Simulated scan of single mutants.
Amino acid sequence: MQTFLTFIVVGFSIALPVGAITVEMTKQGLKNGFFHGLTVGAGGMTIDLLLILALYAGFAQFLSLPFVQIPLLIGAVFLMILAYDSIKHADQDIHLAGEKVNKSFAKTYRNGLLVAVSPGNLVFWVSVFGAVLADAYTKTDSSEFMLAAAGILAGILLHDIGLLTLVSLTRKVMNRTMIKWTSIIAGILLLGFGCYFFYEFYIGIKVYF
Rank of each mutant, 00 (worst) to 15 (best):
L158H: 02
V128W: 10
H95T: 01
G120N: 13
T108P: 02
A90R: 06
L190G: 02
G29M: 14
L50A: 09
A150R: 06
A116Q: 10
L133M: 01
T39N: 11
G44M: 07
A150N: 13
F34H: 14
A57S: 15
L51Y: 07
D85S: 12
A15D: 09
A60K: 02
I156G: 03
V167T: 12
F129D: 06
G29F: 05
K206E: 14
M80D: 00
V101H: 00
V115L: 01
I87S: 02
G162C: 07
G11P: 02
G204E: 04
E200L: 04
A60N: 03
I179Y: 01
F197D: 01
L157R: 05
K88G: 08
S143E: 12
R110F: 10
I21V: 02
A76M: 00
A148W: 08
G37Q: 05
V123K: 00
P17E: 07
L82R: 04
G162K: 05
L153E: 14
I14M: 03
W125H: 09
V18N: 05
H95M: 11
Q69N: 03
A116N: 09
F129C: 11
I70V: 14
I161L: 13
H159F: 15
H89S: 13
D141Q: 14
S118M: 03
T39F: 11
S183L: 09
L158P: 05
N102E: 01
L113F: 06
V128F: 08
M178G: 07
G120Q: 04
P71I: 08
L5Q: 05
K100E: 15
M80L: 03
F145H: 12
G75I: 04
G162D: 08
A131P: 00
L133E: 07
K88T: 10
F62R: 09
G44H: 03
L30W: 05
K103A: 14
G41Q: 07
K27V: 04
M146G: 10
R176A: 13
K206A: 15
F78H: 00
A15H: 06
Q28C: 10
I47R: 00
F209K: 12
H95N: 11
I185M: 14
L50C: 12
G44K: 02
S143A: 05
L30C: 10
A54R: 12
I87Y: 01
T108H: 05
I74H: 14
G43Q: 01
T22E: 05
